[in-house]
């Protein structure tokens, strides 16, 4: 029997702030039902939420594919936004290109990418200006 693999797919609406967090919330629910340990759930939830918010703020939404296998949780966030000009700079804590309007909503503190890196075991960013960005993150499940 092959290893079970659970695939979840979500569309993130880039025009509505209030729906950001729905995908990470839904994934959290599934992980709880699987009996995955709270600290793994927390890492996944925070990393995913940060990424979801970024998709809404910067990239007009996108799609998220989540794959859960017995040893890891992989989250692939794909958008067709403007792309990230300088990834190293974007990874710096406190660096943000968010608009004033977004900052007034309490976002854009420049902790998005650093937090995603901090809470995941693997993170890969593929980005091309004017084409879009794919953030591929993995959190391992230690059994």
């Amino acid at each position: 029997m092959s290893e079970p693999l659970m695939k979840l797919h979500y569309n993130v609406d880039g025009t509505d702030f209030t729906v950001a967090g729905e995908a990470s919330g839904a994934v959290k629910k599934v992980l709880k039902q699987l009996g995955i340990s709270p600290d793994v759930i927390r890492k996944v939830a925070i990393a995913m939420y940060e990424c979801e918010i970024n998709m809404v703020i910067h990239a007009n939404g996108g799609v998220i594919d989540v794959e859960i296998s017995p040893d890891k949780i992989r989250m692939i966030h794909k958008d067709v936004g403007p792309g990230i000009p300088d990834i190293d700079k974007a990874m710096t804590e406190g660096f943000s290109t968010a608009s004033q309007q977004v900052r007034e909503l309490g976002f854009g503190a420049g902790m998005g990418l650093p937090n995603m890196k901090k809470y995941t075991d693997e993170m890969r960013i593929d980005t091309e200006l004017g084409v879009g960005t794919t953030v591929d993150m993995t959190v391992y499940i230690k059994q």
């Binding site: 079970p4 659970m6 979840l8 599934v30 709880k32 039902q33 699987l34 009996g35 995955i36 709270p38 859960i68 017995p70 059994q143």
Partner: peptide
């Protein structure tokens, strides 16, 4: 103590199969 609702199954592999079936 943390008293979460029981997972779909005590065995992780079976819990995953159940979660997939559930979807």
């Amino acid at each position: 103590e943390y008293q979460p609702f029981s997972p779909l199954d005590a065995d992780f592999g079976i819990a995953m199969q159940k979660a997939i079936r559930m979807n």
